[in-house]
Amino acid sequence: MHRPGVTIVPIHGRAPQIHDSAFIAPGCVIIGDVTIGADSSVWYNCVLRADTSRIVIGARTNIQDGSVLHCDPARPGDPDGAPLIVGDDVLVGHMAMLHGCRIADRGFVGLGAIAMNKAVIGSDAMLAAGAMLTEGKVIADRELWGGRPARKMRDLDDMAIAGMRMGVAHYAENAKAHAAAVGGL
């Protein structure tokens, strides 16, 4: 499939695998061992660089404008390294930085937030805008963490969870309009 204005770079014998229904906006750079699932969207000027390990993006997930995603290789004492694994129905806000972490299905990463190696964001959990989740920290399901370094602020109620799900639906629909506008689908 033709993806106008998108730079796709195979490296070390690995090429990005992007589902045909995924929207990748112009200006994005997708490098190496990256997998992007069905109906997901990667918005304008994002960089997904999997040159040392792998990046997996699930279905219906959105990676918003200007975000940077990377991973770390295996090292002595750490044979698995730090791949970046993002589940289904995840919202990743503008200019987020995700590095070798894991985000469970329906997780949320706020604007400008940072999640570092081996950090985990649980299902229906949120890392607040501008927060920094340091290496190895775990946000349990339905928790909101914020600050630098991030700490638990409170549990999320059903209304907050519903709002996050509405955000996922909005981005999935809006991606179709953008894809049509740029000729990418």
Score class of each variant (00 low, 15 high):
residue 8 I to Q: 07
residue 10 P to S: 11
residue 13 G to D: 03
residue 14 R to C: 05
residue 14 R to Y: 04
residue 15 A to P: 13
residue 16 P to W: 07
residue 17 Q to G: 02
residue 17 Q to C: 13
residue 17 Q to A: 15
residue 19 H to S: 15
residue 20 D to T: 14
residue 21 S to N: 06
residue 22 A to Q: 12
residue 24 I to H: 09
residue 25 A to Q: 08
residue 26 P to G: 11
residue 27 G to I: 15
residue 28 C to Q: 15
residue 28 C to W: 14
residue 28 C to F: 15
residue 30 I to D: 04
residue 30 I to P: 08
residue 30 I to T: 10
residue 31 I to T: 07
residue 31 I to V: 15
residue 31 I to W: 08
residue 31 I to N: 02
residue 32 G to C: 08
residue 32 G to R: 08
residue 32 G to A: 07
residue 33 D to A: 11
residue 34 V to P: 07
residue 34 V to I: 14
residue 34 V to G: 03
residue 35 T to N: 03
residue 35 T to R: 06
residue 36 I to S: 11
residue 37 G to C: 15
residue 37 G to P: 12
residue 39 D to R: 12
residue 39 D to V: 05
residue 41 S to T: 09
residue 41 S to R: 08
residue 42 V to A: 03
residue 42 V to N: 13
residue 44 Y to D: 01
residue 44 Y to E: 10
residue 45 N to R: 14
residue 50 A to Y: 06
residue 52 T to E: 08
residue 52 T to Y: 13
residue 52 T to V: 14
residue 54 R to Q: 06
residue 55 I to H: 02
residue 55 I to N: 01
residue 55 I to A: 03
residue 55 I to K: 01
residue 55 I to D: 01
residue 58 G to N: 10
residue 59 A to I: 06
residue 59 A to Y: 07
residue 60 R to Y: 08
residue 60 R to C: 08
residue 61 T to S: 11
residue 62 N to M: 06
residue 62 N to S: 12
residue 63 I to M: 02
residue 63 I to Q: 00
residue 64 Q to W: 05
residue 64 Q to C: 04
residue 65 D to T: 08
residue 67 S to V: 04
residue 69 L to C: 02
residue 71 C to I: 10
residue 71 C to P: 05
residue 72 D to W: 11
residue 72 D to K: 04
residue 73 P to C: 09
residue 74 A to V: 12
residue 75 R to V: 10
residue 75 R to P: 00
residue 76 P to F: 04
residue 76 P to Q: 15
residue 78 D to R: 15
residue 78 D to F: 14
residue 78 D to C: 06
residue 78 D to Q: 11
residue 81 G to P: 07
residue 81 G to H: 07
residue 85 I to V: 15
residue 87 G to C: 10
residue 88 D to Y: 11
residue 89 D to C: 05
residue 91 L to V: 15
residue 91 L to I: 08
residue 93 G to H: 10
residue 93 G to T: 12
residue 96 A to G: 06
residue 98 L to G: 00
residue 98 L to S: 00
residue 99 H to D: 07
residue 100 G to K: 00
residue 100 G to T: 13
residue 101 C to M: 10
residue 101 C to T: 06
residue 101 C to I: 09
residue 102 R to D: 00
residue 102 R to A: 06
residue 103 I to N: 02
residue 106 R to F: 05
residue 106 R to C: 00
residue 106 R to M: 04
residue 108 F to K: 00
residue 108 F to E: 00
residue 110 G to W: 13
residue 110 G to V: 12
residue 111 L to Y: 02
residue 112 G to N: 03
residue 113 A to Y: 08
residue 115 A to M: 10
residue 118 K to R: 15
residue 119 A to H: 03
residue 120 V to A: 04
residue 120 V to Q: 03
residue 120 V to H: 12
residue 120 V to K: 12
residue 122 G to F: 12
residue 124 D to Q: 01
residue 124 D to Y: 01
residue 124 D to H: 05
residue 125 A to C: 00
residue 125 A to F: 07
residue 125 A to I: 07
residue 125 A to T: 01
residue 127 L to N: 02
residue 128 A to Q: 02
residue 130 G to K: 06
residue 130 G to H: 02
residue 131 A to V: 01
residue 133 L to S: 01
residue 133 L to A: 09
residue 135 E to G: 01
residue 137 K to N: 06
residue 137 K to T: 01
residue 137 K to Q: 13
residue 138 V to T: 15
residue 139 I to H: 01
residue 141 D to K: 08
residue 141 D to S: 04
residue 141 D to Q: 06
residue 142 R to Y: 10
residue 143 E to M: 12
residue 143 E to H: 10
residue 143 E to L: 11
residue 143 E to C: 09
residue 143 E to W: 09
